[in-house]
Design a protein around this nucleic acid. Structure first.
Lengths: 205, 205
DNA sequence: GTAAAATTGTGCAAATAGTCACAAGCAAAG
DNA sequence: CTTTGCTTGTGACTATTTGCACAATTTTAC
């Protein structure tokens, strides 16, 4: 309990949460580790062991109470609050993120969008005005933003990242196809469709 | 060499490739494992060990010849060819994928796009006509498509996936926020921005 | 009230992944 | 040709992750 939780376990919690939400939606009240495992292609033992890091969350003979476990995982992941998100770079991807409705009830809300293109600045997307990248500092502080998505061309991604970090951003979701250099206390997750596909094509022989 | 290559190693090869491409672009000819490692926050030893699974690709005292290694990794990942990709669901994400220029020279090309919305069918995106989802079978076979991206709402994703699998699709890039049930010989990669962000928020305390 | 069935939590074993450190090979300098 | 410096490939070791199997606990059936 007092120890550090392995990153790989934290990475699975959002998956557990997603499937628990689904079961709750379907009217289920309890779920066993076996059942959850089958829905995720993960062994029941692994799910039990993962969850055991956070206390005794299940009940022998019955399984896990879905509503309770959802709440517990939300607490662990710090998403029993809403994090404001900044999106930088309003091309196709930035646009898709700004309009994405998958954030609702999952702990996040896009509250600021930025671009460097003067023609875009001032126009609206999903009710949000596109701000000039030069206003990064002002907006980030005003909106108390700690998480940003970088959706700029690769050529701009590192310098945008540097500005974000300088202004207190602590976590970045990076869509640009490059590795970002950041200080140790800043976290980055990467999304690059080509990289994901290349992992797959290996197995297609 | 004859053995099975661990999945985790295959997963890193695309990253190596991306940084090698970048170095090549900058005019470099050789790169050491140390240098590559620093650009990726991976130890040099790990890069050497990963690559050693595929033969002796480096030269002692010199490092790896960039052009040669790029070609080698492209061969390993089966991207020394172009895979035709089908995108299903032309909302914001599907649209972004269809227009994505990050696939060029990375082994993939979107050659078919589908939607079920009659108003969208027949219109063009990036020079491609949106086809009715009912024409899946015909188009997939005609274009010899083996890889598809699912960018539909969650409610449609599983049934779309079933059709894709039935028509010979062997790898899926899934943007819908659900786990997809597929036969053992079909591979799926998942992209869900909320899931990625939830992995980050844990560490934001 | 007892027996049978279900399911968790967990110690231990197995498998997988990553690091270290160094012999071996190559290049450059003198 | 020899020495020096650099870098790979890899065996041995360490760390991490996963799977197994079962005691402990709860529920259900009779």
């Amino acid at each position: 309990m007092g120890e550090e939780i392995p990153k790989i376990i934290i990475g699975r919690l959002p998956l557990y949460l997603r499937v628990l939400r689904r079961l709750k939606n379907e009217g289920e009240v309890y779920a066993s580790s076996q059942e959850l495992g089958e829905m995720l292609d993960i062994s029941g033992a692994q799910i039990r062991k993962d969850l055991s890091h956070f206390g005794e969350l299940g009940k022998r003979g019955t399984g896990y109470e879905i509503e309770f476990l959802i709440e517990k995982i939300r607490q662990i992941l710090n998403i029993n609050q809403v994090w404001n998100i900044a999106v930088v770079g309003i091309g196709d991807v930035g646009h898709a993120l700004a309009r994405y409705n998958g954030f609702v009830n999952r702990g996040f809300k896009v509250t600021a969008i930025f671009d460097s293109n003067e023609k875009k600045v001032g126009t609206e997307v999903q009710g949000l005005v596109i701000r000039d990248i030069k206003d990064l500092k002002e907006v980030i502080h005003k909106e108390d933003i700690k998480i940003a998505a970088v959706a700029t061309p690769a050529s701009a991604a590192q310098s945008v990242t540097d500005s974000l970090v300088e202004n207190g951003i602590k976590a970045i979701l990076n869509y640009a196809p490059i590795y970002l250099k950041v200080p140790d206390d800043v976290l980055v997750e990467y999304i690059d469709p080509a990289i994901h596909l290349q992992k797959l094509s290996y197995y297609l022989g």
